[in-house]
Nucleic acid binder design. Structure first.
Lengths: 110, 110
DNA sequence: ATTTATTATCGTAATATTGCAATATACAAA
DNA sequence: TTTGTATATTGCAATATTACGATAATAAAT
């Protein structure tokens, strides 16, 4: 098999999974953290920052972009990348729902 | 290659990536949401809830457990699963850092 | 002791991911 | 027009993931 049964889950579950999966790699975490620090950057900045080749970083950027975590706009002969609020807010909402119900000690655990 | 260069990133970046990756699958999102609803459950409850075989669900539960998102304790001849606060809080902290810096409109974007 | 219920593990197949080098594309500047 | 800069794409190899059926392991119940 090797195929996720996407059609069996809700739209929200699939969307969340895509976003979280995109964030589920140390290089992409590093990219997001770098963007938090410098606000915006081009691909080449990351080539100097991370221990990966240019082509690999370009692919990680594409994955983050397709998940809606970053946006990239053409600027001259380079491309400016920055974070996108919307989808990070989705994760925030999900996780805070988890954590808040846990911290209220409502949950009877084992 | 096909191998993530784990040793090149910080401990925090790797830990976060593991947790987020574990949450990056609709079935595992569904499991977490189900646990939020029912507090605790056994594997068989999920077999009736999700469109997956018992063995597949068992593997998803293992992955969530290894990432520290849930815990499972033996209870008679079954196993009781429930959410674990600690690691969800880690994600929460990361994402809220992202979102807060974005919502403050501090970021100059493209 | 045997059956039943619950979960884990093994083996397998299909697909996806990770990473790089090489190449292609696009634009700016000389 | 050629050169340089920045990014994307392609092709490939190694590894990981997803899912299932079959089988094992464990404990409770009959």
């Amino acid at each position: 098999m090797g195929l996720t049964k996407t059609e069996q889950y809700s739209k929200m579950q699939n969307e969340l999974a895509v976003i979280l999966k995109a964030l589920g790699h140390p290089a992409r975490i590093a990219i997001v953290e770098y963007l938090l620090k410098v606000d915006q950057c081009i691909c080449n900045d990351l080539v100097e920052e991370l221990p990966l080749s240019q082509s690999t970083i370009s692919q990680h950027l594409l994955e983050l972009k397709q998940a809606g975590i970053i946006q990239g706009t053409i600027e001259g002969n380079s491309k400016c990348y920055c974070l996108q609020k919307q989808n990070l807010a989705k994760v925030m909402k999900f996780v805070s729902k988890c954590v808040s119900s846990l911290s209220l000690d409502k949950i009877k655990c084992c």
